[in-house]
Design a protein around this nucleic acid. Sequence first.
DNA 1: ACTGAAGTGGGACGATCGTCCCAGTCGCAT
DNA 2: ATGCGACTGGGACGATCGTCCCACTTCAGT
Lengths: 198, 198
Amino acid sequence: MARIPASERRAALVQAALRVVSQRGIAQATTRAIVAEAGMSLASFHYAFDSRDELIDELITTVVAREQEAVLPDDLQGHDIRDMLEAGLLRYFDHLRGDPEHEQAMLELTQYALRSPERHPLAIAQYDRYTELGARSLSAAAELAGVSWTTPVEQVARVLIAFTDGLTLTWLVTRDDDVARSVAHAAADALSRMAEPR
Amino acid sequence: MARIPASERRAALVQAALRVVSQRGIAQATTRAIVAEAGMSLASFHYAFDSRDELIDELITTVVAREQEAVLPDDLQGHDIRDMLEAGLLRYFDHLRGDPEHEQAMLELTQYALRSPERHPLAIAQYDRYTELGARSLSAAAELAGVSWTTPVEQVARVLIAFTDGLTLTWLVTRDDDVARSVAHAAADALSRMAEPR
DNA sequence: ACTGAAGTGGGACGATCGTCCCAGTCGCAT
DNA sequence: ATGCGACTGGGACGATCGTCCCACTTCAGT
């Protein structure tokens, strides 16, 4: 094994852990499975991290931080705010269909964090990040459509996140594209009514 | 330990397993934790069940089957279909607030079933059951409000389930009642537009 | 070239997991 | 009452888990 500084090893292990969680679930993301995925030895793991928990914490933190606007539209399209929202939701749905395992992994990490009091803040931060990204998109869309939100945009964003969560969970189980599109349509409908012409 | 026929022991173990999953998560629902919760010995477990997997499968199946209309309104209230839907969603929210661990357990069981191909059908069945219950409520509400669904009621029900899932997940993380109520309001808004006067 | 720190490898530890075995005990049909 | 099948208890099995230890190798600074 080549010699790699511990900092780089940490990043490589986090990436390997994400792949393992995506493919096999967090329950199967053992230290041995992760180092096998990363092509390292067990000792390298505990040289870079004090414990498996420390890696999982970093996994949640960094992966959410890097979630970026990958999910969000860079060019908003549509005639009015409703169309824009639906287009954005459908774009998210395409992202979901393209990499279902990744979103499933995100869901599992959230639930995992929810299970221990000291990790709960990580789940909160995860949702704050989602809300921030959502609010940014909602603001941009309102700007382009010439409307303003009648409810604080953070609140609208939280509703948006709830809708995308529901879409994700339902589709992951049923794999029913038509239902997912109906959800996107209905969600865009509801959200657009939280805005009014400027 | 009193002598109990295996069939009753199965039911008792399933109930104990549900409590353990609710309180500590499915990862902690080991055979030993379950029998401790049930006040039995390990041997009793494997006398009633061939394996832990068999119990988990039965847990998913029976708990979902018994989910009943506990969640759903027995008396629909509201002036129009929109009000009825919002009242129903708020009623579900009350149920969620009253027993968050139960809904969290349901979510975990779904995700657990999603992780192995042979268990995926259980998750599908779980959602079919939800859809059935939702469709029944939606039909009753439409009847009372004198409207009819412009989309097949099963499809509307699937959207409803997605919305409640999103509400559940978001609230479990943030515990923000206001956001949950906003979600209920917006969801009722969107769903009501899938109906038209008769 | 020498040295000390950084990084690596493999084997081992104790804990806990699901499962199994078997001697023992209870209750019911006869 | 007695025999037999249903049920129980406790201890044990091998597998796998997270973590640790220690001898070893490589590299940077001198």
